[in-house]
Amino acid sequence: MEILQRLGRNTIDTFASIGAASLMLYGALIAIPKWKNIRLTVEQMYVVGVQSLLIILVSGLFIGMVMALQGYTILVNYGAEGSLGPMVALSILRELGPVVTALLFAGRAGSALTAEIGLMKATEQLSSLEMMAVDPLRRIVSPRFWAGVISMPMLAIIFSAVGILGGHLVGVDWLGVDAGSYWSIMQSTVDWNEDVINGVIKALVFAVVIVWIALFKGYSCIPTSEGISKATTETVVYASLAILGLDFVLTALMFGIS
């Protein structure tokens, strides 16, 4: 009986927080964008985009290199090392690019957003904004949302490009796969709409989910040091789970059924 009761309460709580999160997003995005807000968004793009760039570049490079190394050792058994290019390109463009970027983004930028907004709440900065007749949803939440949604697909594109170059570095320059076949077979296999655009769409969906979770967790956290640390952890955990779950759904929709 008690279990049922708890289950019911948890379900209601879940719906309540989904509703609250939707209302928050609605409140943040309903406003007509003003020139000032674009400047704020650019400022936030520096925080969530530029500051995540280094980790994205490094991990993209290494993942491309590892993919090439792993792929080569398998493909060389069948004398098919010419297919290294498409293997690296497809796995990065379709899967690793968006997913790994999203996971890193959740850890790097998502947690920072939650902590920042949580601290602003704890130090009454959000309240004081409200008392200064400035809507914190529009002034604080909205620019961060847009900055994240714009930056994250760009990071994913950069990740993919760097990964493919990393694959070239190991496959061609180190292991001696023919550079011509690396690129040309890749070109004849990779399709712009099917592979590249779908990857970007994935990244875009992940971006919305990560930023949404991060902002909501920060905005609704209990304004104590313990509450903020809990909210930050939850952001990373929920965002990561959401990314992996959504990745399956999106992959099934995009590539599974043809």
Partner: peptide, 28 residues
């Protein structure tokens, strides 16, 4: 914020270059 704006500009430029690389060299 001037410095930040420049860096954001560079970031956007880098993303465009990466996109072009994907378009022209990878997906032909």
């Amino acid at each position: 914020s001037r410095k930040n704006e420049i860096l954001v500009g560079l970031f956007v430029a880098l993303a465009i270059i990466a996109g072009l690389l994907l378009a022209l060299r990878v997906a032909n």
